[in-house]
């Protein structure tokens, strides 16, 4: 008979490198009485979640809970699966049941914070993640959740700041690079953003989202997009204000022709910024696939 421990360790190692399919194959070699053990079920849930098979994550978590009784880690997976399925009320019940057993569990606190944020309860989400940060300030899940909430609040600067900290503490974590990529893109720091997603995609080539985002940033770095850099960098509003102020100033100092020319150039620029990006995106995508 196979001893369960080495199998579980091998499955865990495979998961850590993003090879979820192989981890599932490994778990399938467990003897029948070990399959529903709490740790085996957690690994199964983690593998299925990496493969985006969330309905099965929910089934596995429920089977594990039926076999092992209340277990905060399995309740965490059940909560995540219910949230993915859009049943947020059931998700909340599972996460709160988990928190009743393990009130200081950073994963549970962060998942609950995510759930609250997705329901627009950003203040509660912020308080929950603060609790998690007080327990485990450098846990990747805490960083990731803080970034999500800052982004949802519209605080792009803070989101990018936390991402930088995340990458600094976990330089090998692909999610950290991807989040730095995403938050930099939101602030128009195109090169940092591309670098973030490139590193994330290189560290975990199986993750479609990273490659997708790296591709999107390749679009932003295309030469035809160069004229749009100011808009991406400073945001539409500031760029527009400068242009309008420029036009008004030229007119005020008695140069209506120049003001007209600037206005016309600005109009062309706006049309360009509206029409060109979708075309470049199509072009880059064709070259990519």
């Amino acid at each position: 008979m196979t001893s369960p421990q080495p199998v579980l360790h091998r499955a865990q190692a495979l998961l850590a490198t993003g090879r979820a399919g192989q981890a599932l194959t490994e778990l399938a070699t467990l003897p029948a009485n070990e399959v529903t053990g709490s740790w085996a079920m957690q690994l199964r849930c983690a593998a299925l979640s990496q493969l985006d098979r969330w309905a099965e994550v929910g089934d596995a978590a429920r089977a594990g809970l039926a076999a092992n009784g209340p277990d905060p880690d399995l309740l965490l997976w059940l909560g995540r699966a219910e949230h993915e399925a859009g049943r947020d009320q059931a998700a909340e019940r599972a996460l709160l049941d988990g928190l009743a057993l393990a009130p200081n569990d950073a994963d549970l606190l962060c998942s609950y914070a995510d759930l609250c944020a997705a329901n627009g309860q950003l203040d509660k989400a912020g308080k929950l993640v603060e609790l998690a940060a007080a327990r485990e300030p450098h846990a990747p899940v805490v960083y990731a959740t803080r970034i999500q909430i800052a982004h949802a609040r519209g605080d792009d600067r803070e989101a990018q700041r936390i991402s930088r900290e995340f990458v600094g503490v976990h330089p090998d974590n692909p999610v950290a690079h991807a989040l730095l990529g995403g938050t930099s893109a939101a602030r128009g720091h195109i090169d940092t953003a591309y670098e973030g997603f490139r590193q994330a995609a290189a560290a975990r080539p199986t993750e479609q989202v990273f490659a997708e985002s790296a591709l999107e940033l390749r679009v932003a770095r295309h030469p035809l997009m160069l004229p749009l850099r100011p808009v991406l960098r400073f945001g539409a509003l500031k760029t527009w204000l400068v242009a309008v102020a420029g036009i008004l100033l030229l007119r005020a100092i008695g140069l209506p022709v120049l003001a007209g020319l600037l206005g016309f150039a600005w109009l062309i620029f706006c049309v360009y910024s509206w029409v060109v990006p979708p075309l470049v995106r199509k072009r880059v995508r064709r070259g990519w696939s």
Partner: peptide
């Protein structure tokens, strides 16, 4: 913090536009 506050919501009938694009 640990008391339930979430109610199931129907997904939006129509997908929203990006508010930034309305500029």
């Amino acid at each position: 913090l640990f008391s339930p506050t979430i109610r199931d919501q129907a997904p939006p009938a129509k997908r929203p536009w990006r508010p930034e694009s309305i500029v």
